[in-house]
Design a binder for these strands. Structure first.
Lengths: 143, 143
DNA sequence: ATTGTTGTAACATATTATATTACATCAATT
DNA sequence: AATTGATGTAATATAATATGTTACAACAAT
């Protein structure tokens, strides 16, 4: 089981938009060359980020920019933007209701797994784009 | 993105094995009727649980039982048994090495995501089969 | 008008999860 | 030794999802 790479790709996009905002027009083609995926993937992802209110995209002329400070955008925001808001875990739909395990496992195990999911989201909320940009700047400085 | 239902199914199997150990022979057909999946799915999952040392299966005659106390089996054990031991998140393989974001994002973001994964596993370790059996028994008693 | 861009539809491909059938093998029992 | 009910596993089918790609209409600046 793996998460799709939508979260990493979306994060990469946002970081590039901010990192290069004064040097380049951050078009889907430009971003695609850094991430190394098809520009259409970038446009679709930008569409999700736009719908989530994280970026604005200049129609026609092109280029994207953040709508708020990198310190105010967390991985949680990005995750919510690009992943379906569905159950992280899922259960066999129709366990046997005549079995005491079958008719109770969904709620009993579900409660525990929901806690796991909440912790994961809390971890995501702790990381901002500004944190990541700082780490990247540190790497750059060390090169 | 969703986890497959292997973790819930495997947990369901283990709970049934323990809950019904004194009443029924817990064959793949019996377990399949509680979980409501094909018996072959049960056998494959039992194979994974057996490989992980959590159960032993009686060849020929049939039936499975736990190899240790339910208090000593955690969701982490079950998760490790049935999910590939791979990266939880995955990255675009070949980001542009000429871009400072592209060449550093894997390690910078990867570090953060690895922490998220470690927290998830730690959460799994906190839940034992005995906990779940107790919750189910409480539900049964309240019915 | 031309240009470069976005937004989106349509389609292709690969991977994974799950379901199902079939059958060889096994161990206990008769 | 034959029967029985079970496991282990291969082969295959189906569906869902992720990703890649082409194509093109709409758009905004020049």
């Amino acid at each position: 089981m793996q998460f799709s790479f939508r979260l990493p790709v979306a994060t990469h996009i946002l970081l590039c938009i901010e990192r290069f905002k004064d040097e380049y027009k951050t078009t889907s083609t430009f971003l695609a060359s850094s991430v190394n995926v098809n520009p259409v993937i970038i446009r679709k992802t930008l569409g999700q980020l736009k719908a989530a209110g994280l970026v604005e995209v200049a129609a026609g002329v092109g280029g994207a920019k953040l709508t708020k400070s990198p310190a105010d955008i967390t991985l949680w925001d990005v995750f919510q933007a690009v992943e379906e808001d569905e159950e992280l875990f899922h259960f066999q739909e129709n366990p046997n209701p005549k079995c005491p395990v079958g008719r109770n496992i969904h709620v009993v195990l579900g409660d525990r797994l929901e806690e796991v999911r909440q912790h994961m989201l809390a971890d995501f909320q702790k990381v901002t784009l500004a944190d990541l940009l700082a780490s990247i700047a540190a790497k750059e400085a060390a090169e």
